[in-house]
C-alpha cells in the first residue's frame, strides 16, 4: 500500500550506537540519578536493601541494573506486571 502524502519516514539509529559499557562518569544526569537512589537506599531497613556495592556501578549498563532493582522496590506495581 502506498504511503499517504503526509507520511514521513524516520530512519533507524545505527546499531553501533548502543553502548552499555559507556562510563557512568561521562553522563552527569545518570550519575546523579544513581546518587539519588543510593541516598534513598540508605534510609531503607537492611532487609529491604539491594546489596549493591556503589563502587561496582561504573557503566550505564550497571547503573540500569541497579536502577531496575530500586524501581522495583519503590514502584512494585511495574515489577509485578513485567514492566508495564
Amino acid at each position: 500500500m502506498a504511503e499517504p502524502s503526509n507520511a514521513i519516514r524516520i530512519p533507524k539509529p545505527s546499531r553501533s550506537s548502543f553502548n552499555m559499557d559507556r562510563l557512568l562518569e561521562k553522563n552527569s544526569l545518570l550519575l546523579n540519578q544513581v546518587k539519588h537512589f543510593l541516598e534513598l537506599e540508605k534510609t531503607f531497613p537492611p532487609e529491604k536493601r539491594t546489596g549493591t556495592d556503589p563502587k561496582s556501578i561504573t557503566t550505564e549498563g550497571r547503573a540500569a541494573e541497579y536502577i531496575r532493582k530500586m524501581t522495583d522496590i519503590l514502584h512494585p506495581k511495574t515489577a509485578k506486571s513485567g514492566g508495564r
Binding site: Q33, L40, I67, R68, M70, D72, L74, T78
Partner: peptide, 17 residues
C-alpha cells in the same frame, strides 16, 4: 521502563508511587 525509571526519585517516586 524499570531500568530507566524516573528522575523524580527522592520526592515523587518515593512518596507518590
Amino acid at each position: 521502563d524499570r531500568a530507566s525509571s524516573s528522575l523524580e526519585v527522592v520526592n515523587l517516586l518515593k512518596n507518590q508511587p
